[in-house]
Measured scan of single mutants.
Amino acid sequence: SYYEILDVPRSASADDIKKAYRRKALQWHPDKNPDNKEFAEKKFKEVAEAYEVLSDKHKREIYDR
């Protein structure tokens, strides 16, 4: 789930989600993982997609249904 990707509970606040996104984006940024760039790019995209949905109140409500 998007919550698992960002490592936050379903009850996470918008601020918690933003902090988790920043932490995970740094962790999986391809430039930070030169030895495993392809895998890092995949993870980085997953993190971005999760944040896009969970950071938008309307999209998150739909996702949580």
Rank of each mutant, 00 (worst) to 15 (best):
D15C: 10
Y51C: 04
V53T: 12
K32R: 14
E52I: 11
K24T: 04
F44M: 15
K42L: 13
Y2Q: 01
K42D: 06
V53H: 07
K42R: 13
Y63G: 02
K57M: 11
D31E: 12
H58F: 10
K18W: 13
L54V: 02
N33H: 15
V53A: 04
E4Q: 11
I62M: 13
V8M: 04
R10Q: 11
L26G: 08
S11L: 09
D16M: 12
E61N: 07
P9L: 07
W28V: 03
R60D: 02
W28Q: 02
Y51F: 12
D15Q: 08
N33R: 04
E61A: 13
D35I: 09
A25K: 11
W28S: 03
F44K: 04
W28M: 04
D7R: 04
S55V: 08
L26D: 15
K37W: 09
K24N: 04
K59M: 10
I62A: 14
P30G: 05
L26C: 13
P9E: 08
A50S: 04
E38H: 09
R23G: 06
S13H: 06
S1W: 11
D56W: 02
Y2F: 11
R22Y: 15
E38F: 08
H58C: 14
K43N: 06
R10D: 06
P30Y: 05
A40C: 08
H29P: 02
N33M: 06
L54C: 01
D7K: 04
P9G: 08
A14H: 12
Q27A: 07
H58N: 15
K45T: 07
P34D: 07
N33L: 05
F39A: 15
D7G: 15
S55W: 05
Y3W: 03
K59N: 06
Y21A: 07
E49W: 07
K37F: 08
Y2C: 05
P9R: 07
H29I: 05
V8S: 02
K37Y: 12
A14W: 07
A20F: 01
A25N: 06
A48T: 14
Y3I: 00
D56Y: 03
R23C: 13
F39S: 06
A50M: 01
V8D: 00
E41F: 11
L26I: 12
E38S: 12
A20H: 03
K32V: 12
R10E: 08
Y21R: 03
L6N: 00
F39K: 07
E52D: 12
K45W: 09
V8C: 08
K43W: 06
H29V: 05
P9Y: 05
K24C: 08
E52Y: 14
R23P: 02
Y2M: 06
F39G: 06
D64F: 02
D16N: 04
A25I: 14
E46S: 06
N36K: 08
D31W: 05
E46Q: 12
P30K: 06
K43L: 07
L54K: 00
D35W: 11
V53M: 05
V47L: 14
E46N: 04
Y21W: 09
F39D: 08
P34S: 11
D15T: 10
K43S: 05
K32I: 09
E41W: 12
F44D: 03
E38G: 08
A25S: 14
R23M: 13
H58Y: 14
V47P: 00
Y2T: 01
D35S: 12
E49L: 11
V8F: 00
Q27L: 13
R65E: 08
E4K: 11
R65S: 13
R23A: 14
A48Q: 15
A40T: 05
I62K: 09
Y63S: 02
E46W: 06
K19H: 12
Y3N: 01
S55T: 06
E52H: 10
L6K: 00
K43V: 08
K19N: 14
K18I: 14
E41I: 13
A12I: 02
E41H: 10
I62L: 13
R22P: 02
E49Y: 07
L54R: 00
E49Q: 09
K42A: 13
A12Y: 01
A20L: 02
D64Q: 02
Y51P: 01
R65W: 08
N33Q: 06
V8P: 00
E52N: 11
E49R: 08
D56Q: 05
A50H: 00
I62F: 08
N33C: 07
L6R: 00
Y51G: 03
K37S: 09
E52M: 12
E52G: 11
E52R: 11
A20W: 01
D15L: 11
D15E: 14
F44C: 07
D56M: 03
R65Q: 13
D35P: 05
L54G: 01
I17L: 07
E4N: 10
R60W: 02
D7W: 04
F44S: 10
H29D: 14
P30M: 05
K18S: 11
D35V: 09
V8K: 01
A25V: 14
N33Y: 14
Q27W: 07
A50N: 01
K42N: 09
L26H: 09
H58R: 14
Y51D: 01
L54P: 00
F44P: 01
V47G: 02
D56P: 01
I17G: 00
D56L: 03
R65T: 10
I5H: 04
K43G: 03
K32H: 15
L54A: 00
E61V: 06
A40Y: 08
K57R: 13
A40S: 08
D31A: 10
A12P: 03
K57I: 13
N36C: 15
R23W: 08
S11H: 14
L6M: 05
Y51T: 01
P34I: 11
F39Y: 15
E4F: 09
E41C: 13
V53S: 03
E4D: 14
I62Y: 08
A12E: 01
L6P: 00
Q27M: 09
A50I: 03
Y63A: 02
Y2N: 02
I5Y: 05
D31C: 11
P30C: 06
V47I: 15
K18C: 12
D56F: 03
S1M: 08
Y3L: 01
A40D: 03
K32G: 10
A12K: 02
L54N: 00
A12R: 00
V53N: 05
K42C: 13
D56T: 05
S1P: 05
D31G: 08
Y63V: 03
F44T: 06
S55R: 11
K57E: 15
K45R: 14
V8T: 03
Y3G: 00
E61Y: 11
H58P: 04
V53D: 01
R60K: 10
I17W: 00
D15W: 09
D56K: 04
P34C: 09
Y51M: 04
L54H: 00
D16I: 07
F44L: 14
D64W: 01
K42P: 03
L6A: 00
P9T: 07
E4P: 01
R23T: 13
L6V: 01
I17Y: 01
D56E: 04
V53W: 07
I5Q: 04
L26K: 11
E38K: 11
V47T: 04
D35E: 13
R22M: 15
R10G: 05
D35Y: 09
Q27R: 09
K24E: 04
K43C: 09
V8W: 00
E49K: 11
D16Q: 11
D7Q: 10
N36W: 08
A48D: 07
D16T: 09
E41T: 12
F39W: 14
Q27V: 07
S1T: 12
A50F: 00
A12L: 01
W28P: 01
L54I: 03
I17V: 06
E52V: 06
N33F: 15
D35F: 14
W28Y: 12
S11Y: 13
N33A: 04
A14D: 14
K32M: 15
K19M: 13
K59Y: 05
N36A: 10
P30I: 06
K42V: 11
K42S: 10
N36R: 12
Y2E: 01
K24A: 10
N36Y: 07
Y63K: 03
A50G: 02
E49N: 07
P30E: 06
N36T: 08
E4Y: 09
H58V: 14
R23K: 15
P34W: 13
L26E: 14
K32F: 14
S11F: 12
D16F: 07
A20C: 04
K42G: 08
S11G: 12
P30R: 05
W28K: 01
E46V: 04
I17Q: 00
Q27E: 13
R22T: 14
E49I: 10
A20D: 01
R10H: 11
S13L: 05
F44E: 03
K57G: 09
A20G: 05
I5C: 07
A14T: 13
Y63L: 04
A25T: 12
D64S: 03
D7V: 03
S13N: 11
I62G: 06
R10M: 12
E41V: 12
D35L: 13
L26M: 14
R65N: 14
D56C: 06
E49G: 05
Y21I: 02
R23D: 15
E4C: 14
D7A: 08
Y51H: 04
K42W: 10
Q27Y: 11
R65M: 14
Y2L: 12
K19P: 01
I17M: 04
K42T: 10
P34G: 09
H29Q: 10
K37E: 08
K45H: 10
L6T: 00
E38Q: 12
